[in-house]
Amino acid sequence: MATYFPPLTAAEAALLAGVLPATIRQWRHRGLITPIGGTPRAPLYDGRAVLAVSRTRKTPATAAA
């Protein structure tokens, strides 16, 4: 069964992924994640998409930590 995530702010998405909020914003600007709602100044993100990107972006040393 898939895990449900409510729409997440950049700060909440960062906590989920174990990165800084600035990293979430960079992923957005690079097109790795797309907001699913919110406003241009306060976008909301899908937690599953954030986790998927975080798994591909972490180095093996940080993924094991």
Rank of each mutant, 00 (worst) to 15 (best):
A22Y: 00
T3C: 12
R30A: 15
L8P: 12
R25E: 11
M1H: 11
T56N: 11
A64V: 02
L51I: 09
A10S: 13
A64R: 03
A65W: 00
W27L: 00
T59F: 08
Y45R: 02
T23L: 01
G18W: 09
A22T: 11
A2C: 10
A61D: 09
P43F: 00
A22V: 07
V50W: 05
Q26F: 14
T39I: 01
A13W: 13
T3W: 05
A22S: 10
L8W: 12
Q26K: 14
V19Y: 02
P21F: 07
Y4I: 10
V53Y: 01
Y45N: 01
L8E: 03
T9K: 07
A63Q: 14
A13H: 08
A14K: 04
A13S: 13
T23Y: 01
T39C: 03
A2I: 13
G18A: 12
K58H: 08
T3I: 12
K58A: 15
A14R: 13
T34G: 04
L16H: 11
G18M: 10
P60H: 04
T23M: 05
G18T: 05
L44P: 00
T23I: 03
R55N: 11
P43G: 01
I24G: 04
R57E: 10
P7C: 09
A10Y: 06
R55L: 08
A10C: 03
A17G: 13
T62I: 08
L16E: 03
P6A: 15
S54V: 03
L51G: 01
A2K: 14
V50Y: 02
Q26G: 03
I24V: 15
I33G: 01
R28E: 15
H29M: 14
A10V: 13
V19I: 14
T9V: 04
Y45S: 02
T39P: 03
D46C: 06
A42V: 09
M1Y: 12
A17S: 14
Y45T: 02
M1T: 13
A52R: 10
P7E: 13
L32Y: 05
A22W: 05
A63M: 09
T3S: 13
Y4F: 12
A64W: 01
G37K: 11
R55D: 03
T56A: 15
R25A: 12
D46Q: 06
A42I: 09
M1D: 14
P43R: 03
G38K: 00
L20Q: 15
V50M: 05
L32Q: 10
A10G: 08
D46V: 09
R28L: 09
G31Q: 05
D46R: 09
A17D: 06
T34H: 07
A52K: 05
G38N: 08
T56M: 08
D46Y: 06
P60I: 02
G37M: 13
L20C: 14
A63W: 00
A14G: 12
A11Q: 14
E12P: 08
P21C: 05
P6K: 06
G37F: 12
I24F: 05
A64P: 02
A13I: 11
P21D: 03
R28Q: 15
A22E: 12
K58G: 07
S54W: 02
L15Q: 15
A64E: 14
A65L: 12
A65P: 00
P7T: 06
E12M: 11
T23S: 11
M1N: 11
H29A: 15
L16C: 14
T59I: 00
R41M: 06
V53A: 08
